[in-house]
Amino acid sequence: MSSIAEVGRMERELSRVDRLSEDIHFPPELLLEILLWLPSKTLLKFRSVCRIWCSFIDSSNFISLHLNCYNYDYSQKSIDHLIAIQRIVDVGCFFTIRSSDRLNTVADLAELAEPYSISGNCNGLILLNYGWNAVRLWNPSIRKSLFLPDCPIKLRWSRIRRCHVTYTLGFSRSSNDYKVLAVKTNLPSYSDDKAYIAVYSLADHLWRVKPNPVSVSKWAISWLSPEGGLVCCGGVVYWVDNDLHRKPGAYMKLYLYDFDVEEFSVMQLPDAVKESTHRLIFAHGDSLAVLLMSSESICIWVLKKDGGENPWRLWFKGEPHLNASKLFECANVVYCKNSNTFLLNNNLATMSYDIANNQIRILKEKDMMNFRISFQTYVESLVLHKGFGETITLFL
Rank of each mutant, 00 (worst) to 15 (best):
V7T: 10
E11T: 11
R16G: 14
S21K: 11
P27D: 15
I34H: 06
L36S: 12
K45A: 05
C50F: 01
S59W: 04
S60D: 14
I63K: 08
Q76V: 08
I79W: 07
D80S: 12
H81G: 04
H81A: 01
I85V: 12
G92N: 06
F94G: 08
F95L: 15
T96K: 11
S99W: 03
D101P: 05
L112K: 10
A113K: 08
G120T: 02
N121F: 03
I126L: 10
W132I: 11
A134W: 13
L137R: 01
L137T: 01
K144M: 12
L146T: 01
C151A: 05
S158G: 05
H164D: 12
V165R: 04
T166S: 13
T168M: 03
G170W: 03
R173S: 10
R173A: 13
R173Q: 14
S174K: 14
V183K: 00
K184Y: 03
N186D: 14
S191F: 12
D192K: 09
Y196L: 15
A203N: 15
W207F: 11
N212M: 10
S215G: 00
S215H: 02
P226V: 06
G228Y: 08
C232H: 09
G234P: 06
G235R: 04
P248H: 04
L254E: 06
D271H: 07
I281L: 09
M293S: 08
S294K: 05
S295V: 11
S297Q: 15
V302N: 01
G307V: 04
E309Q: 10
R313H: 13
L314P: 05
F328M: 09
F342K: 03
L344D: 00
N346E: 04
N347A: 13
N347C: 09
M351E: 10
S352Q: 13
Y353L: 10
A356R: 14
E380G: 06
G387R: 07
I392T: 07
I392K: 01
T393H: 14
